[in-house]
Design a protein around this nucleic acid. Structure first.
Lengths: 409, 409
DNA sequence: CCGCACCTTTGGAACGGTCCAACGCTCACC
DNA sequence: GGTGAGCGTTGGACCGTTCCAAAGGTGCGG
């Protein structure tokens, strides 16, 4: 049983997806020191402030509870022998505090492990330094990219993100507006599709709001940042046309984005006078949908009386996953990619980067969308009543191994 | 929109990954009504409470600012013609409020669009109803599953999740302990590997803390919930042995998880007296690493003088992505899967579910890990000083198309 | 020796809620 | 008719901060 030493790490490294660790699950195997009926079946509501604990209720002001889990600014003051106001000044980094006192305060803070209470702070500051982020579905790798971009900028401005996943969390998803308002977040970013538009309109009137990655809700003070799907589709299609393909097919997706990408495809096709050879088949954005659509597009004649010679030689799929479905279909039908069929996907997910698939794909630069959304939000936080803006980010085609010129007829 | 009729949605539907929408990006195309030099280059620090805004500072108590963006409980009281205490009672759903008043208050709330201030509330309640979640890397699909499980339970108990991504957010990742303490979250869940263990020990002394998906930091009051990686690996290996394979190989991963999975493989192999035919090659959890390891494992003889007949007939990979790399290698070397080579991956990510790949994989039931972590946390929130518990969840093997009995020699 | 400016330090009033003790009222009872 | 219970309602203290006005101390000029 040889151990062999670790590989120096491949150049392809970037193509992650699941990192250098993973894990298991299923049945259990407790080793817990818990008595069985410990947790009383508390109703799902949020009431009942821990009944058994019963707060000390000590009227006299002397509540310097040593083992108190959270020391306050007063405990610190007392320990340092100064007033709470001075402690506050030190915390703000005020320059007009004598060095001696400052040291004393800092020491006290350290010894007590004092941490300022954010709630109390934001209560008076009227700012939470928190941005609410409404996600549509975290499982979508595209979102993660957007979040990354968003975060990088927000963080640099001292803002943290509070994420709510609308899919995973229907209740919160429904009235995310309420939640975010109660939390008094400084701003809101909606990533992707959102459940109810009217709720959004309501919050937007009160809080700076930006929508990232959707073309949809045009509301008074809400900025929009999205990818230019139509243009991306045009670019992909023109790439295929440029290679010499004349019979093109598109596997469409749903929703506005599906519509835009289909439109881009049709526009390009029309611009080159190839309308007669072009076909659009509908899919649903899933692998299975892509597979079925591809079968319909590539199957020889049968019924339609279409000669095999008229089979499309190039295929532009709504997204990578549909593209992968199409790839499977092609392979099962004995068509080689790219020799017999050129294929382009969309989104440039890491699926496209798997060498086994190696799809050309339109890169929608989600990261940039996130960054811009952040920039918009920051701007809007300063001028809440500015007119709604809109930005489209232009995608680029990532070339890999799934397209080639058509076989000479 | 959505021309063509939607596909009835394939049975494979579950295999998501990117959903029914995606998007683009790259250069820009503004249409923004913003003056250019608007945002002054504020330094990255978090100070400077909006200098230009300058609060009204109106000493007299009469601050019923009509267009005030956030009405308070007092505005509501005034409007309803009752005391703020009554409003509070209504908000708590107290039964001892006359119907007339209750209606009046509710009406006022509605008209003003009043939303209670969570900060003020938690200040007195000493509870935030928020759980801090420290992620290691959101890009890892495994985490998303865990989060999902976590969320489902926490939410049912009226808790929201505040997520911080340590990778994406180095600063926050470093002192997440500080952040979570300042926010006075009700508890902390660390998902996956964590950056610094000492910071964790510090918080854990003050806040209920649970680690999900890692075997690592054994700390006084910190519960651990993880998958039983060793067992999962054993199950996978035994599946291969059960099919009749006698020459087995493993592509190992890194870290503790890598170690555990390798150990499971070795244990199974030893238990069946197949040690002499077993090989372990190290990878790094990436596709490329898996590819290279597989090449080394499968290449005929060359140098080693190993006859092709001794090539392994079955391969257990550290994770799906390494497995996919191995798949590519096998294909390039003209080996059919599963006819010439059986392959099992780990994590059962949606990669494994792509029909083009269709890998057998150990399902680590991340969702369950999340649920259990939530349960642990809830328990610990009630009894913070309980001894640290530990749970391992047993994984199951998901059978697809990548294994078969070896060719009869 | 007094007054004044300057600097550091401090008490107290917010911030927006919750909770408790006490209030006024009605009604029943003795 | 007084008393007390019960109900609905209210003022005020408090949660842990920040900020402001003002207090105390020091030093200097007149």
């Amino acid at each position: 049983m040889e151990r062999s030493n670790a590989q120096p790490g491949g150049h392809l490294g970037a193509a992650t997806g699941e990192h250098a660790d993973g894990r298991p699950a299923g049945r259990s195997e407790e080793s817990h020191g818990e008595r069985p009926g410990a947790r009383s079946g508390q109703p799902p509501a949020e009431p009942s402030a821990a009944p058994p604990v019963a707060r000390p209720a000590e009227p006299t002001g002397a509540r310097t509870g040593a083992a108190d889990r959270h020391p306050t600014i007063r405990s610190v003051a007392e320990r340092a022998g100064v007033s709470k106001s001075l402690v506050s000044l030190v915390l703000q980094g005020s320059p007009r505090v004598s060095d001696a006192r400052r040291q004393a305060v800092l020491a006290a803070i350290e010894e007590l492990g004092y941490r300022p209470n954010a709630a109390a702070r934001s209560l008076v500051a009227r700012r939470t330094h928190t941005v609410g982020v409404l996600l549509h579905d975290m499982r979508n790798p595209w979102f993660v990219e957007v979040l990354d971009g968003l975060n990088s900028l927000l963080q640099a401005h001292g803002l943290r993100m509070l994420m709510i996943d609308a899919r995973l969390d229907r209740r919160a998803g429904q009235d995310f507006a309420r939640t975010f308002q109660e939390l008094r977040v400084d701003g809101i970013v909606v990533v992707g599709t959102l459940p109810d538009t009217e709720g959004l309109a309501e919050v937007a009137a009160r809080l700076p709001t930006v929508v990232a990655g959707n073309h949809e809700p045009r509301l008074p003070h809400v900025d929009l940042v999205a990818n230019d799907d139509e243009r991306g589709a045009r670019i992909a299609t023109e790439h295929l046309i440029g290679l010499g393909h004349r019979r093109l097919a598109h596997i469409a997706g749903r929703g506005i984005v599906g519509e835009l990408r289909r439109r881009g495809f049709e526009t390009a096709v029309r611009a080159h006078g190839l309308t007669s050879g072009a076909v659009v088949e509908s899919g649903d954005g899933t692998e299975e949908g892509g597979y079925r659509a591809a079968v319909r597009l590539l199957a020889p004649a049968r019924g339609t009386g279409r000669p095999a010679a008229e089979r499309p030689t190039a295929l532009f799929a709504f997204n990578d996953i549909s593209g992968v479905g199409a790839l499977s279909a092609a392979q099962e039908m004995g068509l080689a990619v790219p020799a017999d069929l050129s294929l382009v996907g969309y989104d440039n997910t890491y699926l496209a980067r798997i060498r086994h698939l190696w799809l050309n794909s339109v890169n929608n630069a989600s990261h940039e969308v996130g960054r811009r959304a952040a920039r918009c939000l920051l701007a809007r936080m300063e001028r809440p009543d500015a007119p709604a803006g809109q930005q489209l980010v232009t995608p680029e085609l990532e070339i890999r191994g799934s397209t080639a010129p058509p076989r000479p007829a």
